[in-house]
Nucleic acid binder design. Structure first.
Lengths: 342, 342
DNA sequence: CTGAAAGCGCTTACAG
DNA sequence: CTGAAAGCGCTTACAG
């Protein structure tokens, strides 16, 4: 590998001048610039990133830590983060901790010690609070997406699951439904609890009484959707609509309902969460689920904006950005009223 | 951020000694080591990675370039690469080029210029050949997984799709099927062509005549599976078994067949490719597809082994490793012979 | 418009 | 067992 000195020698100039050319700095005669560029081309020279970072104290990189890479809405987010960071001429590199705390610490140290100018954290859980506190104390630029600890002041991007759930249930109510069920996720997790609360709130605002038979608590596990829908369908007074914690449950519910002889959306309306369809494009359902969508584009854009702001000025106050979910209108909801035109 | 000098001062030793402690080198008195470790803890010191890389010419990092992150079998591979690299005390960082050639070049330069000790490339296509040639010329450690250019000598990990397809079709033949169809992928891609050729070879070896009605050429697009299965089912002499290019087509085919009134596996056996089920865990099918699986664990393990070997000795000859696929026995194949016990 | 010098934070011979 | 010195490959004032 050639270095800046080789280029300087070949071009007959000083290292300083080569550096100016590399960094597109003004104040170099065109003729000189061309000589340098020729030399760079000839030796196929790329500046050593470690040396640059060391002296300039900037890496041009944002590090992103995932607990694990899996097929979820946050996978697409990765591509979007790269896209938006590119607009700032920043590279984005990702890592997976394989759900291991020691690995997380390793990667945090790796990124914060000169390799990246800022860090975006995903899927942080309670075990991470020590690590996160340390990063914050060191004034290192940090953005957390959907964090799970409320006691730490940190740049945070959150999704308004409460109002999202409310909106979904309101939509069902507007369609004329009053017997609306909810299949929950693991309510020890914030997300699941907020969706449950949003569901309750929508009922309350519309004067519909909360019916505990209509709320099936699950851990959002593999067959939670089909098991829950079965319970609901065989109630004496079954619901006409169901809001599920996630799309998997929604799709499972459609299939199970069909097997039992209940047609979606004619007999039963279903709304899911996450609008996973386009992420997977492997779903073999002939009905596209109506679903609450995360505003992934906005999240990616604002995460990058926020981290760039903190890189520019690491004394800026922690900010919490909340984003609304939107309803994707699929084919799994139908109207209960006569006057309802769809 | 404190540096090695701060630690030296606080511990009352030289930078050299601090460096020895950081790097777990022998020849430091226990007492001294403890003083240094105390100082490190006290100042919450992490060695600057850029400086270390610069002088040691090692980063302890493997870079991995994806064209794009999406839900495929290669997503799990990412987690596995991290797992196996950790055994060598190496970090792995990933990036997405968003299918953009300029971005790919940017990340290649980023990784090769001191940030990573070796590079693993995915989903390389013909447009990349220039970039790949340059990396090879520079003797930089490189491993390509499933490369698409045959004219370049490079460390390459490939999957034996030809023999895999042969094995899948042989399995159907062993079950007593003779009227076996194939739904292809885009055969301008190597993978699809090899699977088609494997299909043909299995028929040939078993003396079954190739029937062109039984081969439906598709681009593996969204509804290619259901469209193809429809054509096959309505043939005058429809097949009793189908081998599809991928699992999406397989699952689509199951569903479409069911709609038409053809039961899988009783009336029709189906084998897919990639065994995507566990990657997605969102598939709402009550039948688990029998499918050809990529040996992802082995690929990850050998990719890391190969890159580590090249990092240790970058003059080693390029190696091509080919891995066999294995058949996952799902629930979508049935027997045609009377004497066949399943 | 150009260059000599200092220095970023480490590691690595070398000397003791 | 420990430390002083050189140097990795750059950038950044500073001087001209």
């Amino acid at each position: 590998m050639s270095n800046i000195f080789d280029i300087a020698k070949l071009a007959g100039v000083s290292k300083t001048t080569v550096s100016r050319v590399i960094n597109n700095k003004p104040g170099v005669k065109d003729e000189t610039r061309i000589k340098v560029l020729d030399a760079i081309e000839q030796l196929d020279y790329t500046p050593n990133q470690a040396a640059r970072s060391l002296v300039s104290r900037k890496s041009g990189v944002i590090g992103v830590i995932y607990n694990v890479f899996n097929a979820s809405i946050y996978l697409n987010l990765a591509n979007l983060l790269e896209k938006y960071a590119a607009q700032y001429n920043y590279n984005v590199v990702f890592c997976s901790t394989n759900d291991d705390c020691d690995s997380k610490l390793r990667y945090v140290q790796y990124f914060t010690s000169g390799t990246a100018d800022g860090l975006i954290l995903f899927g942080s859980d309670c075990r991470d609070s020590e690590i996160v506190k340390k990063i914050i104390d060191s004034k290192y630029p940090l953005v957390v997406i959907e964090n799970y600890f409320k006691d730490i002041k940190v740049n945070d991007i959150i999704i308004d699951n409460f109002n999202g759930a409310k909106k979904a249930v309101q939509y069902l109510i507007d369609l004329g439904h009053t017997k609306i069920a909810h299949i929950t996720g693991n309510i020890s997790h914030k997300v699941a609890l907020e969706r449950l609360n949003g569901y309750k709130e929508a009922l309350k605002e519309n004067g519909i009484e909360y019916n505990e038979d209509y709320v099936i608590f699950t851990d959002a596990g593999e067959s939670s959707g089909s098991e829950a829908i079965e319970k609901l369908i065989f109630l004496n007074d079954p619901p006409t609509a169901v809001f599920t914690f996630n799309d998997m449950q929604g799709y499972d519910a459609i299939q199970k309902a069909k097997e039992i002889g209940v047609q979606v959306p004619q007999d039963l309306s279903i709304i899911g969460c996450d609008n996973i369809y386009e992420v997977l494009h492997y779903i073999s359902s002939n009905l596209r689920l109506t679903s609450l969508m995360q505003p992934i584009e906005k999240i990616a854009q604002s995460a990058i904006e926020l981290i760039m702001k903190n890189i520019a000025n690491n004394k800026s106050e922690p900010q919490v950005l909340s984003f609304d979910t939107e309803l994707y209108y699929g084919e799994t909801c139908s109207c209960r009223e006569s006057g309802c035109d769809d």
